[in-house]
Design a binder for these strands. Sequence first.
DNA 1: GATGAATGAGCTTTCATTCAT
DNA 2: GATGAATGAAAGCTCATTCAT
Lengths: 197, 197, 197, 197
Amino acid sequence: MNTEKKSTIKRKKIITAAAAVFSQKGFHQAKMDEIATKAQVAKGTLYYNFSSKSLLFSATVTEGMETIISQVREELVSDLPFSDHFRLLVSTMVRLHIKHNDLTLICFNEISSGIDDGVLEEIRKVRTRFIDFIAELLTVGQAKGYIKDIDVQLAAVALAGIIDSVCSHILLNPRKTSRKKAVDTLHEILSSGFLKA
Amino acid sequence: MNTEKKSTIKRKKIITAAAAVFSQKGFHQAKMDEIATKAQVAKGTLYYNFSSKSLLFSATVTEGMETIISQVREELVSDLPFSDHFRLLVSTMVRLHIKHNDLTLICFNEISSGIDDGVLEEIRKVRTRFIDFIAELLTVGQAKGYIKDIDVQLAAVALAGIIDSVCSHILLNPRKTSRKKAVDTLHEILSSGFLKA
Amino acid sequence: MNTEKKSTIKRKKIITAAAAVFSQKGFHQAKMDEIATKAQVAKGTLYYNFSSKSLLFSATVTEGMETIISQVREELVSDLPFSDHFRLLVSTMVRLHIKHNDLTLICFNEISSGIDDGVLEEIRKVRTRFIDFIAELLTVGQAKGYIKDIDVQLAAVALAGIIDSVCSHILLNPRKTSRKKAVDTLHEILSSGFLKA
Amino acid sequence: MNTEKKSTIKRKKIITAAAAVFSQKGFHQAKMDEIATKAQVAKGTLYYNFSSKSLLFSATVTEGMETIISQVREELVSDLPFSDHFRLLVSTMVRLHIKHNDLTLICFNEISSGIDDGVLEEIRKVRTRFIDFIAELLTVGQAKGYIKDIDVQLAAVALAGIIDSVCSHILLNPRKTSRKKAVDTLHEILSSGFLKA
DNA sequence: GATGAATGAGCTTTCATTCAT
DNA sequence: GATGAATGAAAGCTCATTCAT
């Protein structure tokens, strides 16, 4: 038991370090050396726990995204009337998106960059997993009669994209754009679109 | 005249090949050897025309995006009534986004991954340039009284993000999602939002 | 103990190989491949131990020169009367200069050729270190009343130069010039100059 | 005639530029591009006049050294009594050595650095030519009864080495060492050696 | 005679991965 | 389980040289 725990702790240290480095540098620019140093572990230990860089990346992303999804789920449990609930959804997603910027960056931007095909597939699954989760939320909204009768899958993709884009913009231009204003605008657009009634 | 044309032609061949390889493989996985082969020039010629991989990347993105912007501008000249015009805007952007998938992929996804700082800055400028262009279109719509009084900059970011996300989805799941349906859904969302009236 | 020794041994093998190749080919013409082959290690091992070619060069020169200096110092310990002692100094320097031709060649000839500035500075320090060592010997001679009252720094530079030049000449024309004759002539010149009394 | 002159002028411009660049950067670090730029000539023109970099180097050194030798010869014509004449020899050589530092640097320091064998041979000849010239001066001195009966060839090598070394030292430490003091010390050593009478 | 765009062999350096300890 | 010295394939980049104009 002790031994197993010890190794579990090391595994976590590695994943945490990996998440930080991967998100900061991107897959190809992240070096196993740096991850090992940051995790306070010898390089060999990385390979003892994950058989390749790609697999470490895969594990990092997958586990991280699971965490985010469960956090969103937790925070959305509420008894607010729907109009407030939709606003909460938007602001929660923005907050968590920014908080876990490392992972979302990886998950939404590093899709193309020439990683092992097998691993790429894994990353896509994670992304799909996230989209499905959003679609699920939208379906609930439709069932309750608040959300329009549109293709939830596509709508989820659109929602993820719009939030990712706006959050990245906030992080890149923190002076020009306040988070509150961003949430307001997002909420406005997502509620009733661009056009005047 | 002939000499000048010749060098221009070679430059273009290189840029074209670079766009293809960069978008397919991402910056770090794209190899100068492959670009050279695809452009049917010697590797040295790459460096004779662009002093580094980063600069070639930068030139590829910048020139490509300029092309896209001017194409959108061209296609949007029309005398349609506004409701149709907005639909045209959406469908045009989707079409061109998909057509120039190489460049949009690079431009919207390769922002983080450890490229030279100077070049990164350049890429950001290109992205900003595109956002500004969209914002400009939205401002015109506001002036004509069709578009809501929202922050155009943020709205442009949102618009770019939503289109990018949906187009990537179409390309990744060509069987599941037809382009027409995607445009319809996008138009619906962008016109009047997710919520029932 | 064993582990430490092993890495030390490899380091030494590399330095030895590097000294041979650098002196034979000069800094720019020396190839890391050749040094690796000669040291019987993989090229990566060179970089594992020395972070760049320049630094390997620097280490090679510095460590080598230290060795020479301590050898000269050892061999000069003697109780000979001064007149013999001065002859011993000259012949010892000639012998060691020729024996360690690799290093002296590097140290006195490769000063200009476009190496990293930082490393160049290091090489200059080594050279200065050697000159200072000679100056120290001359100062002792002055204290004992045998050596003229001249600027020891300049005299040391002159002494190093004359010996370097003559030794190179011997090595280049081994048939024409015997080492004994060279030492005799050097001793004559250094003792009482070119001019008749 | 006109055409020939024109090409001669270009040849000279190239040689001048080459001397500057080679001496500043050393053979391997000197780039044909830089020489062409400095000579205000297209790169092809370099190859039109000199079939390779090595040959350009060779020509540069040879022609330069010829110039120096004839300058020394000119300046040494004098009717001074010998004691003054020897001092003049030393100070003249120092002055010209420093003035033509480019060439002397090349000629005395770039001998080893992995240039084409054929060219290396050429450079050695130039060096020998210079040594022979000095030896010739010494022989005259011996004939006149002022210079000791030592091997003139070796003595010339020694003289060249000592002057090269001291001059380099002056150039490297211009603040610490005045040229006058250097000439005085050199003259003292070369006249009557290091030892007290 | 003169040019400069084009070439490609060859170099230094990086870094994921392995394996003896 | 854990380590880190050692590896070597692979990549970006340089630059002397060529040749069509």
